[in-house]
């Protein structure tokens, strides 16, 4: 086993985040991070580490299955101590396949990684964010790093190493790729998020919340029932365990009961305000400010109060 940490994500931004996570291991795994490049021509790697270019897979957007096989072949030869992978949907597939190929453990959704030189540790949320667990896995091992948990680090790579892993074929064929709804929301970078829940009586009423979000220069989010069961908003708006994780300056939950699975997606917001008719709604336990009341009265009142300010 060599004392190096490998970093991989199909997304360059996430790859830079995972590089920061890898630096958390550098005290005990001294060789520093090596960022895997599968033909994506990555520049942004930290100066403390290097770049590992794997040649062989034909595409610049390798399927997760192909990426996993390429990294597996390289790992068999170079034997890294740890492989950190961004916990995107495709990243989870790469990490899981790699773990099954290498027969090593895979920690998941780490918001913090560390090592004592023998084990890899991951701190993560479990039970829909109700509990924080620290999980260990003997080196060599794999972990997926939660997207958005680490800042992006970027610099010029110190050294580049190339390795030919040979041709790899995937089993599925991509017919098309399409961006989700053009002009769709960027909840991850929004400073203010107004989020809608079951308390909204009909789809048309969302316009009122969308206006409020606009007036606050923010974005509109929702809880799972609105995007999944009711289909009133596209799924990119869904904040929660299986949706987007956000941490805006201000999160306003409107008519959201506050199921753990929703709270898991917004609990790191700086300030949370909630409006709900039910004084016992769990959302108030996750809020800094609560108003028990009818959103159809409170939201127009908030818009009026905002207008009076300016």
């Amino acid at each position: 086993m060599s004392l190096s940490v490998w970093v991989y994500s199909e997304s360059e931004g996430v790859s830079d985040e995972v590089t920061s996570a890898a630096l958390d291991l550098s005290m005990n795994i001294p060789a520093g991070p090596s960022v895997i490049d599968l033909g994506q021509a990555r520049n942004g790697t930290h100066s403390a580490g290097g770049k590992l270019v794997l040649k062989g897979p034909p595409s610049s957007e390798p399927a997760p299955q192909v990426a996993a096989e390429a990294i597996f072949r390289a790992a068999r030869e170079l034997r890294p101590a740890a492989i950190l992978i961004g916990a995107t949907r495709n990243g989870r597939e790469v990490a899981s396949r790699l773990a099954a190929k290498l027969k090593v453990g895979c920690l998941s959704e780490a918001f913090k990684v560390s090592s004592d030189g023998q084990n890899l540790f991951a701190e993560r949320n479990v039970y829909a964010g109700k509990v924080v667990a620290k999980v260990a896995c003997p080196l060599p091992s794999i972990a997926t790093v939660k997207v958005g948990a680490y800042p992006r680090s970027g610099s010029i790579p110190k050294e580049t190493r190339e390795l030919d892993v040979g041709h790899i074929d995937g089993q599925i064929r991509v017919l098309s790729r399409e961006s989700k709804a053009a002009g769709s929301v960027d909840l991850k970078s929004a400073k203010v998020i107004v989020s809608a829940g079951r308390g909204i009586k009909k789809k048309e009423d969302l316009a009122m919340l969308e206006d409020l979000a606009k007036e606050m220069h923010g974005a509109l989010g929702c809880s799972r029932p609105l995007s999944s069961d009711l289909g009133w908003l596209p799924e990119e708006h869904h904040i929660g365990l299986t949706g987007v994780t956000v941490k805006p300056e201000l999160y306003i939950a409107v008519g959201i009961s506050g199921q753990l699975q929703h709270v898991a997606g917004m609990k790191d917001s700086k300030i949370v305000a909630a409006i709900n008719t039910d004084k016992d709604a769990p959302i108030f336990q996750a809020s800094d400010y609560g108003i028990v009341g009818d959103l159809y009265q409170v939201i127009p009142a908030i818009r009026k109060a905002l207008a009076n300010r300016t």
């Binding site: 920690l107 620290k134 260990a136 896995c137 336990q285 809020s287 009341g293 127009p300």
Partner: peptide, 23 residues
């Protein structure tokens, strides 16, 4: 391979201020 080292309830530092009054 993996084992749990520790588990603890998520601590919440929310202020829980309930704002009263008319809308």
């Amino acid at each position: 391979q993996s084992s749990v080292v520790s588990m603890a309830a998520q601590s919440s530092s929310r202020r829980h201020v309930m704002i009263e009054g008319s809308p």
